Computed example of a mutant assay.
Amino acid sequence: MSSMAAPRSAMGESVRIVLRDEDEENGDDSPSAKRPKLDRFPLTRWEIVASFSVFFIFSAGLFCVYLTMPAADFGKLKLPRSISDLRLLKDHLGSYAKDYPAQFILGYCSIYIFMQTFMIPGTIFMSLLAGALFGVIRGLLLVVLNATAGASSCYFLSKLIGRPIVSWLWPEKLRFFQAEIAKRRDKLLNYMLFLRITPSLPNLFINLASPIVDIPFHIFFLATLIGLIPASYITVRVNGVGSLESTGMMYGGSNCLNMAGLALGDLKSVKDLYDFKTLCVLFLIGFIFICPALLRRKKIYE
């Protein structure tokens, strides 16, 4: 009996192995099966701790800046999420920015860089606010410097923990971006300027993916600093004409800078900033920068 039981046991084990192999090939839909890779959170425990640590450090710095701000009715202040919110915020901040310009700029820069670093939506409203309160020229300078600093912080944050997140959220887009970067290594700055000037790829994706595809920081920094100027100008030219004579009262200049922009009261939506004509201009500027790279590739293939 024992000799007959042994072959049966061995036969049953072999059948179970074959069935298990077939399940692995055909896919196991049982609840106990492993989840697909894309369904699992991409960060390891160490990366989660590192990201929370960086967020805590930035938050502590932002809170320290808040403690240095002069007293004000902060209950009326909130991050704008619409044009109507922006108009109300501009009215509340107008006199405060006039009385405490240095403290206001410090707080504005801290919030802008914090939002840009941690990919918090709403920086376009912060850019609109800069144009409304400071005028076109100073607003443009403020926005470009803050956007560059925030994008640089996001670059280094992505260098620390970004690879699994970007690979998880945008695998196809990341492969496309990596292939394009590999083809344009010799004219990388021109290509990055094209991406920054035109809306070909979202700035959020560029900030996160750049360190992953091995774009050097100096190329990333220069492309961001220069490439954000056209789009930032389009944003800050919307200003608060007729609100509190912001530019002249705060800095002793004339209000003629405001005449170069648009009245904030006439703006109905953020989409109004980027009409077809504006997008064509951005792509034309971007094409000028990428032209040397295209011409060089043409000579190589000839």
Rank of each mutant, 00 (worst) to 15 (best):
E13F: 14
S14D: 14
V15G: 04
R16G: 11
D23L: 15
E25D: 04
N26Q: 08
N26E: 10
D28G: 00
L38G: 04
L38Y: 10
F41K: 04
S51R: 02
F52G: 11
S59A: 15
L62G: 12
C64L: 14
M69E: 14
P70G: 02
S82C: 04
I83W: 12
L86N: 07
L88Q: 08
L88S: 13
H92D: 11
L93A: 01
Q103T: 06
F104C: 06
C109G: 00
I113A: 03
T117G: 04
F118M: 00
T123H: 00
T123G: 08
M126H: 00
G131S: 03
V136R: 00
A149Y: 03
L160Q: 09
W170Y: 15
A182V: 01
D186H: 12
T198N: 01
F205L: 13
S210C: 10
H218R: 11
I229N: 09
P230V: 10
P230D: 04
V238Q: 01
G252L: 05
G253R: 11
C256P: 00
S269G: 03
D272W: 09
L273A: 06
L273I: 15
D275M: 02
K277L: 07
K277E: 14
I285P: 03
L294H: 07
I300K: 13
E302P: 07
